[in-house]
Design a protein around this nucleic acid. Sequence first.
DNA 1: TAGAATTAGTTACGCGCATAATGTTATGCG
DNA 2: CGCATAACATTATGCGCGTAACTAATTCTA
Lengths: 154, 154
Amino acid sequence: MDFAYADALNQAIRLLSLRHRARAAALLAPLGLHPGQEALLLELDRTGPRIQAQLSEALGCEPPSVTLMTRKLEASGHIRREPAPFDKRASIVELTDSGKALADHVKQLWHALAEETVTGLPAQTVAELPAILNTMTGNVDTRRPATHTAADTV
Amino acid sequence: MDFAYADALNQAIRLLSLRHRARAAALLAPLGLHPGQEALLLELDRTGPRIQAQLSEALGCEPPSVTLMTRKLEASGHIRREPAPFDKRASIVELTDSGKALADHVKQLWHALAEETVTGLPAQTVAELPAILNTMTGNVDTRRPATHTAADTV
DNA sequence: TAGAATTAGTTACGCGCATAATGTTATGCG
DNA sequence: CGCATAACATTATGCGCGTAACTAATTCTA
Protein backbone atom coordinates (compact mmCIF):
# COMPACT_ATOMS: atom_id res chain seq x y z
CA MET A 1 0.00 0.00 0.00
CA ASP A 2 1.42 3.39 -0.99
CA PHE A 3 0.95 6.58 0.93
CA ALA A 4 -1.33 8.12 -1.69
CA TYR A 5 -3.83 5.33 -1.10
CA ALA A 6 -3.53 5.52 2.66
CA ASP A 7 -4.05 9.26 2.57
CA ALA A 8 -7.04 8.94 0.26
CA LEU A 9 -8.61 6.30 2.47
CA ASN A 10 -8.16 8.10 5.74
CA GLN A 11 -9.37 11.35 4.28
CA ALA A 12 -12.37 9.64 2.71
CA ILE A 13 -13.34 8.21 6.09
CA ARG A 14 -12.88 11.56 7.75
CA LEU A 15 -14.94 13.39 5.15
CA LEU A 16 -17.68 10.78 5.15
CA SER A 17 -17.90 11.16 8.90
CA LEU A 18 -18.23 14.93 8.69
CA ARG A 19 -20.71 14.99 5.82
CA HIS A 20 -22.88 12.12 6.96
CA ARG A 21 -23.12 13.67 10.38
CA ALA A 22 -23.88 17.09 8.92
CA ARG A 23 -26.62 15.61 6.74
CA ALA A 24 -28.05 13.81 9.76
CA ALA A 25 -27.98 17.06 11.68
CA ALA A 26 -29.92 18.81 8.94
CA LEU A 27 -32.55 16.06 8.91
CA LEU A 28 -32.86 15.88 12.69
CA ALA A 29 -32.91 19.62 13.35
CA PRO A 30 -36.64 20.00 12.58
CA LEU A 31 -37.30 17.43 15.31
CA GLY A 32 -35.23 19.38 17.79
CA LEU A 33 -32.56 16.65 17.89
CA HIS A 34 -28.80 16.84 17.54
CA PRO A 35 -26.85 14.03 15.89
CA GLY A 36 -25.98 11.36 18.43
CA GLN A 37 -29.25 11.67 20.26
CA GLU A 38 -31.10 9.75 17.58
CA ALA A 39 -28.86 6.76 18.27
CA LEU A 40 -29.97 6.74 21.88
CA LEU A 41 -33.65 6.94 20.95
CA LEU A 42 -33.29 4.17 18.37
CA GLU A 43 -31.46 1.94 20.82
CA LEU A 44 -34.22 2.33 23.39
CA ASP A 45 -36.78 1.71 20.66
CA ARG A 46 -34.99 -1.47 19.60
CA THR A 47 -34.36 -3.01 22.97
CA GLY A 48 -36.65 -1.38 25.51
CA PRO A 49 -35.49 0.18 28.80
CA ARG A 50 -31.76 0.08 29.48
CA ILE A 51 -29.46 1.31 32.18
CA GLN A 52 -26.94 3.91 31.13
CA ALA A 53 -24.00 1.54 31.17
CA GLN A 54 -25.78 -0.60 28.58
CA LEU A 55 -26.48 2.47 26.49
CA SER A 56 -22.85 3.48 26.71
CA GLU A 57 -21.88 0.06 25.42
CA ALA A 58 -24.49 0.01 22.66
CA LEU A 59 -23.80 3.52 21.42
CA GLY A 60 -20.05 3.08 21.53
CA CYS A 61 -19.46 6.21 23.59
CA GLU A 62 -18.32 6.84 27.13
CA PRO A 63 -20.54 7.05 30.22
CA PRO A 64 -20.14 10.83 30.67
CA SER A 65 -21.49 11.32 27.16
CA VAL A 66 -24.52 9.23 28.04
CA THR A 67 -25.07 11.26 31.19
CA LEU A 68 -25.29 14.49 29.20
CA MET A 69 -27.36 13.08 26.36
CA THR A 70 -29.88 11.49 28.69
CA ARG A 71 -30.13 14.67 30.71
CA LYS A 72 -31.00 16.69 27.63
CA LEU A 73 -33.45 14.16 26.23
CA GLU A 74 -35.06 13.95 29.65
CA ALA A 75 -35.33 17.76 29.78
CA SER A 76 -37.10 17.73 26.42
CA GLY A 77 -39.45 15.02 27.66
CA HIS A 78 -38.48 12.21 25.32
CA ILE A 79 -37.08 9.82 27.89
CA ARG A 80 -37.59 9.08 31.57
CA ARG A 81 -35.04 7.99 34.16
CA GLU A 82 -35.87 5.92 37.22
CA PRO A 83 -33.62 4.43 39.87
CA ALA A 84 -33.08 0.74 39.27
CA PRO A 85 -34.67 -1.39 42.02
CA PHE A 86 -32.02 -4.11 41.67
CA ASP A 87 -29.03 -1.76 41.83
CA LYS A 88 -29.05 1.53 43.64
CA ARG A 89 -26.16 2.86 41.54
CA ALA A 90 -27.94 2.39 38.23
CA SER A 91 -30.75 4.34 36.61
CA ILE A 92 -33.11 2.84 34.08
CA VAL A 93 -33.75 4.87 30.96
CA GLU A 94 -36.90 4.42 28.91
CA LEU A 95 -38.83 6.21 26.18
CA THR A 96 -41.83 8.36 27.06
CA ASP A 97 -44.82 8.41 24.72
CA SER A 98 -43.35 11.53 23.17
CA GLY A 99 -40.06 9.71 22.77
CA LYS A 100 -41.71 6.74 21.09
CA ALA A 101 -43.44 9.01 18.60
CA LEU A 102 -40.17 10.80 17.97
CA ALA A 103 -38.35 7.52 17.45
CA ASP A 104 -40.86 6.56 14.76
CA HIS A 105 -40.20 9.82 13.01
CA VAL A 106 -36.45 9.33 13.32
CA LYS A 107 -36.78 5.89 11.76
CA GLN A 108 -38.29 7.43 8.65
CA LEU A 109 -35.49 9.97 8.38
CA TRP A 110 -32.95 7.25 9.00
CA HIS A 111 -34.35 5.19 6.16
CA ALA A 112 -34.26 8.16 3.81
CA LEU A 113 -30.71 8.99 4.85
CA ALA A 114 -29.47 5.46 4.16
CA GLU A 115 -31.04 5.43 0.71
CA GLU A 116 -29.59 8.83 -0.05
CA THR A 117 -26.18 7.68 1.11
CA VAL A 118 -25.88 4.65 -1.17
CA THR A 119 -27.35 6.28 -4.25
CA GLY A 120 -25.39 5.38 -7.37
CA LEU A 121 -23.55 2.43 -5.83
CA PRO A 122 -23.84 -1.04 -7.41
CA ALA A 123 -26.36 -3.31 -5.71
CA GLN A 124 -23.71 -5.79 -4.68
CA THR A 125 -21.62 -3.07 -3.07
CA VAL A 126 -24.66 -1.83 -1.21
CA ALA A 127 -25.36 -5.34 0.02
CA GLU A 128 -21.82 -5.82 1.28
CA LEU A 129 -21.40 -2.35 2.70
CA PRO A 130 -22.50 -2.90 6.31
CA ALA A 131 -20.20 -5.90 6.68
CA ILE A 132 -17.30 -3.99 5.14
CA LEU A 133 -17.80 -1.02 7.45
CA ASN A 134 -18.18 -3.27 10.48
CA THR A 135 -14.96 -5.05 9.64
CA MET A 136 -13.15 -1.76 9.38
CA THR A 137 -14.65 -0.61 12.66
CA GLY A 138 -13.56 -3.81 14.35
CA ASN A 139 -10.06 -3.37 12.97
CA VAL A 140 -9.58 -0.01 14.66
CA ASP A 141 -11.73 -0.61 17.73
CA THR A 142 -9.74 -0.06 20.89
CA ARG A 143 -12.71 -0.63 23.16
CA ARG A 144 -13.26 -4.26 22.30
CA PRO A 145 -10.41 -6.74 21.91
CA ALA A 146 -9.76 -6.87 18.15
CA THR A 147 -12.12 -9.39 16.60
CA HIS A 148 -10.72 -10.01 13.15
CA THR A 149 -13.55 -12.03 11.68
CA ALA A 150 -14.70 -10.58 8.38
CA ALA A 151 -18.34 -11.65 8.23
CA ASP A 152 -20.65 -9.92 10.66
CA THR A 153 -24.11 -8.66 11.40
CA VAL A 154 -26.64 -6.95 9.19
CA MET B 1 -34.43 -1.22 1.25
CA ASP B 2 -35.85 -2.27 4.59
CA PHE B 3 -35.37 -0.39 7.83
CA ALA B 4 -33.10 -3.04 9.31
CA TYR B 5 -30.60 -2.42 6.53
CA ALA B 6 -30.90 1.36 6.79
CA ASP B 7 -30.36 1.19 10.52
CA ALA B 8 -27.39 -1.13 10.14
CA LEU B 9 -25.81 1.13 7.56
CA ASN B 10 -26.26 4.38 9.44
CA GLN B 11 -25.05 2.85 12.64
CA ALA B 12 -22.06 1.31 10.90
CA ILE B 13 -21.08 4.71 9.53
CA ARG B 14 -21.54 6.31 12.92
CA LEU B 15 -19.47 3.66 14.69
CA LEU B 16 -16.73 3.70 12.08
CA SER B 17 -16.51 7.46 12.54
CA LEU B 18 -16.17 7.19 16.28
CA ARG B 19 -13.70 4.31 16.30
CA HIS B 20 -11.52 5.48 13.43
CA ARG B 21 -11.28 8.88 15.04
CA ALA B 22 -10.53 7.36 18.43
CA ARG B 23 -7.78 5.22 16.93
CA ALA B 24 -6.35 8.26 15.17
CA ALA B 25 -6.43 10.13 18.46
CA ALA B 26 -4.49 7.34 20.15
CA LEU B 27 -1.86 7.36 17.41
CA LEU B 28 -1.55 11.15 17.32
CA ALA B 29 -1.50 11.74 21.06
CA PRO B 30 2.24 10.95 21.43
CA LEU B 31 2.89 13.74 18.91
CA GLY B 32 0.82 16.18 20.90
CA LEU B 33 -1.83 16.34 18.19
CA HIS B 34 -5.57 15.99 18.36
CA PRO B 35 -7.55 14.39 15.51
CA GLY B 36 -8.40 16.97 12.89
CA GLN B 37 -5.13 18.80 13.24
CA GLU B 38 -3.30 16.15 11.26
CA ALA B 39 -5.54 16.89 8.28
CA LEU B 40 -4.43 20.50 8.34
CA LEU B 41 -0.75 19.57 8.51
CA LEU B 42 -1.11 17.04 5.70
CA GLU B 43 -2.94 19.53 3.52
CA LEU B 44 -0.19 22.10 3.96
CA ASP B 45 2.37 19.39 3.28
CA ARG B 46 0.60 18.38 0.08
CA THR B 47 -0.06 21.80 -1.38
CA GLY B 48 2.22 24.29 0.29
CA PRO B 49 1.09 27.54 1.91
CA ARG B 50 -2.65 28.24 1.83
CA ILE B 51 -4.94 30.93 3.12
CA GLN B 52 -7.44 29.82 5.70
CA ALA B 53 -10.40 29.91 3.33
CA GLN B 54 -8.64 27.36 1.15
CA LEU B 55 -7.93 25.20 4.18
CA SER B 56 -11.55 25.39 5.20
CA GLU B 57 -12.54 24.18 1.76
CA ALA B 58 -9.91 21.42 1.63
CA LEU B 59 -10.60 20.11 5.13
CA GLY B 60 -14.35 20.21 4.70
CA CYS B 61 -14.92 22.20 7.86
CA GLU B 62 -16.07 25.73 8.58
CA PRO B 63 -13.88 28.83 8.84
CA PRO B 64 -14.27 29.20 12.61
CA SER B 65 -12.90 25.69 13.05
CA VAL B 66 -9.88 26.62 10.97
CA THR B 67 -9.34 29.72 13.06
CA LEU B 68 -9.09 27.66 16.25
CA MET B 69 -7.02 24.85 14.76
CA THR B 70 -4.51 27.23 13.22
CA ARG B 71 -4.28 29.19 16.44
CA LYS B 72 -3.40 26.05 18.39
CA LEU B 73 -0.96 24.72 15.84
CA GLU B 74 0.64 28.14 15.72
CA ALA B 75 0.92 28.20 19.50
CA SER B 76 2.69 24.83 19.42
CA GLY B 77 5.05 26.13 16.74
CA HIS B 78 4.08 23.83 13.88
CA ILE B 79 2.67 26.45 11.54
CA ARG B 80 3.19 30.16 10.87
CA ARG B 81 0.63 32.77 9.82
CA GLU B 82 1.50 35.86 7.83
CA PRO B 83 -0.73 38.55 6.38
CA ALA B 84 -1.29 38.03 2.66
CA PRO B 85 0.29 40.80 0.57
CA PHE B 86 -2.38 40.52 -2.13
CA ASP B 87 -5.36 40.65 0.21
CA LYS B 88 -5.28 42.41 3.54
CA ARG B 89 -8.17 40.32 4.86
CA ALA B 90 -6.44 37.00 4.31
CA SER B 91 -3.65 35.30 6.23
CA ILE B 92 -1.29 32.80 4.68
CA VAL B 93 -0.66 29.62 6.64
CA GLU B 94 2.49 27.58 6.16
CA LEU B 95 4.42 24.82 7.89
CA THR B 96 7.40 25.65 10.06
CA ASP B 97 10.40 23.31 10.08
CA SER B 98 8.95 21.70 13.17
CA GLY B 99 5.66 21.34 11.33
CA LYS B 100 7.31 19.71 8.34
CA ALA B 101 9.03 17.18 10.56
CA LEU B 102 5.77 16.52 12.33
CA ALA B 103 3.95 16.06 9.02
CA ASP B 104 6.45 13.39 8.03
CA HIS B 105 5.79 11.59 11.26
CA VAL B 106 2.05 11.90 10.77
CA LYS B 107 2.38 10.38 7.31
CA GLN B 108 3.89 7.25 8.78
CA LEU B 109 1.09 6.94 11.31
CA TRP B 110 -1.46 7.60 8.61
CA HIS B 111 -0.07 4.81 6.50
CA ALA B 112 -0.17 2.41 9.42
CA LEU B 113 -3.72 3.44 10.27
CA ALA B 114 -4.95 2.81 6.73
CA GLU B 115 -3.38 -0.63 6.65
CA GLU B 116 -4.82 -1.46 10.03
CA THR B 117 -8.25 -0.27 8.90
CA VAL B 118 -8.56 -2.49 5.83
CA THR B 119 -7.10 -5.62 7.42
CA GLY B 120 -9.06 -8.69 6.45
CA LEU B 121 -10.89 -7.12 3.51
CA PRO B 122 -10.61 -8.64 0.02
CA ALA B 123 -8.08 -6.88 -2.23
CA GLN B 124 -10.74 -5.82 -4.67
CA THR B 125 -12.83 -4.26 -1.93
CA VAL B 126 -9.78 -2.43 -0.66
CA ALA B 127 -9.08 -1.12 -4.15
CA GLU B 128 -12.61 0.16 -4.60
CA LEU B 129 -13.03 1.51 -1.11
CA PRO B 130 -11.94 5.13 -1.59
CA ALA B 131 -14.25 5.56 -4.57
CA ILE B 132 -17.14 3.98 -2.68
CA LEU B 133 -16.64 6.24 0.32
CA ASN B 134 -16.26 9.30 -1.87
CA THR B 135 -19.48 8.50 -3.67
CA MET B 136 -21.29 8.19 -0.35
CA THR B 137 -19.78 11.44 0.84
CA GLY B 138 -20.87 13.19 -2.34
CA ASN B 139 -24.37 11.82 -1.91
CA VAL B 140 -24.84 13.44 1.48
CA ASP B 141 -22.68 16.50 0.94
CA THR B 142 -24.66 19.67 1.52
CA ARG B 143 -21.68 21.97 1.02
CA ARG B 144 -21.07 21.18 -2.63
CA PRO B 145 -23.85 20.74 -5.18
CA ALA B 146 -24.19 16.95 -5.45
CA THR B 147 -21.48 15.74 -7.81
CA HIS B 148 -21.97 12.05 -8.40
CA THR B 149 -18.60 10.71 -9.43
CA ALA B 150 -19.49 7.04 -9.78
CA ALA B 151 -22.90 7.10 -11.40
CA ASP B 152 -25.84 9.32 -12.12
CA THR B 153 -28.73 10.03 -9.83
CA VAL B 154 -31.81 7.88 -9.41
C1' DT C 1 -16.85 56.50 -8.66
C1' DA C 2 -19.91 55.69 -4.69
C1' DG C 3 -22.65 52.45 -2.57
C1' DA C 4 -24.07 47.53 -2.37
C1' DA C 5 -22.88 42.92 -2.19
C1' DT C 6 -19.40 39.54 -1.38
C1' DT C 7 -15.54 37.49 0.95
C1' DA C 8 -11.72 36.61 4.83
C1' DG C 9 -11.41 36.14 9.34
C1' DT C 10 -12.79 36.37 14.14
C1' DT C 11 -15.62 35.97 18.49
C1' DA C 12 -19.32 33.88 21.19
C1' DC C 13 -21.78 30.01 22.19
C1' DG C 14 -23.72 25.11 21.97
C1' DC C 15 -23.35 20.09 21.24
C1' DG C 16 -21.03 15.47 21.06
C1' DC C 17 -17.32 13.12 22.46
C1' DA C 18 -13.12 12.28 25.27
C1' DT C 19 -10.35 11.70 29.83
C1' DA C 20 -9.66 12.33 34.86
C1' DA C 21 -11.29 12.52 39.38
C1' DT C 22 -15.09 11.76 42.78
C1' DG C 23 -18.93 9.63 45.39
C1' DT C 24 -21.76 5.71 45.98
C1' DT C 25 -23.15 0.99 45.76
C1' DA C 26 -22.02 -4.16 44.70
C1' DT C 27 -19.23 -7.81 44.87
C1' DG C 28 -15.34 -11.01 45.54
C1' DC C 29 -12.21 -12.89 48.73
C1' DG C 30 -9.28 -13.87 52.73
C1' DC D 1 -17.67 -10.70 58.36
C1' DG D 2 -14.78 -6.94 56.76
C1' DC D 3 -12.13 -4.96 53.53
C1' DA D 4 -10.31 -4.24 48.93
C1' DT D 5 -11.85 -3.98 44.35
C1' DA D 6 -14.91 -3.30 40.71
C1' DA D 7 -18.88 -1.09 38.56
C1' DC D 8 -22.60 2.88 37.91
C1' DA D 9 -23.07 7.44 37.53
C1' DT D 10 -21.68 12.19 37.87
C1' DT D 11 -18.89 16.61 37.60
C1' DA D 12 -15.09 19.21 35.59
C1' DT D 13 -12.51 20.24 31.75
C1' DG D 14 -10.76 20.24 26.87
C1' DC D 15 -11.02 19.60 21.79
C1' DG D 16 -13.34 19.46 17.15
C1' DC D 17 -16.99 21.04 14.73
C1' DG D 18 -21.21 23.65 13.97
C1' DT D 19 -24.16 28.21 13.53
C1' DA D 20 -24.90 33.18 14.22
C1' DA D 21 -23.30 37.66 14.45
C1' DC D 22 -19.68 40.85 13.69
C1' DT D 23 -15.58 43.71 11.53
C1' DA D 24 -12.74 44.79 7.80
C1' DA D 25 -11.31 44.47 3.09
C1' DT D 26 -12.42 43.60 -1.70
C1' DT D 27 -15.20 43.49 -5.80
C1' DC D 28 -19.18 44.26 -8.45
C1' DT D 29 -22.25 47.46 -10.46
C1' DA D 30 -25.42 51.21 -11.28
